[in-house]
């Protein structure tokens, strides 16, 4: 089961390696991880997409909470959060398929951010499954390079994480 967890941490030296070390040391999976500072400059926020059954997810959240530098762990359930990801995609775009690439970009409301006579570089944003979908369509046309940010997530509704 895929699961998205937000981890609010002290913006201090070595915190990322504490979190990552916890996952590797205990054999937990990380599908993706993204981290950056928040509106409170002393705090960073990580979004971790992980896999495991209920018992493993419970352990992951408890173990994260046990780290001294972790301020809060938010375990997002299906439906109570919005997640988004960005991808930068370099595709082959020569005579035959230049128009096809543009059509796909248009359908997914993505953007062309760099052009050469042989390629397009695309910026696509959306829920991770939407990124998967555009990639599926672009792959047969010649995918040269791909960078994904990993998902970031935020809870739905008027309340912030502090409630």
């Amino acid at each position: 089961m895929k699961h998205t967890i937000s981890v609010l941490v002290e913006n201090e030296f070595g915190v990322l390696s504490r979190v990552v070390g916890l996952f590797s040391g205990r054999g937990f999976n990380i599908d993706s991880l993204s981290v950056a500072p928040t509106n409170d400059e002393k705090m960073s926020r990580m979004t971790i997409v992980t896999r495991g059954d209920e018992q493993i997810l419970e352990q992951i959240c408890k173990q994260l909470n046990k780290l001294i530098d972790v301020i809060k762990v938010i375990d997002f359930n299906e439906g109570n959060a919005i997640d988004r990801e960005m991808a930068l995609i370099k595709v082959t775009a020569e005579d035959g398929n230049r128009a096809e690439v543009l059509r796909i970009v248009d359908i997914f409301r993505a953007k062309i951010i760099d052009v050469t006579t042989k390629s397009y570089t695309i910026e696509a944003t959306g829920a991770p499954h939407k990124i998967d979908a555009i990639l599926e369509l672009l792959r047969p046309l010649g995918l040269k390079e791909l960078v994904r940010t990993g998902a970031v997530a935020i809870g739905r509704g008027a309340k912030g994480w502090k409630g």
Binding site: Q55, E58, Q59, K62, Q63, N65, K66
Partner: peptide
């Protein structure tokens, strides 16, 4: 005292 010990 340690929640991680429980149900591990």
């Amino acid at each position: 005292v340690d929640p991680t010990s429980i149900k591990k």
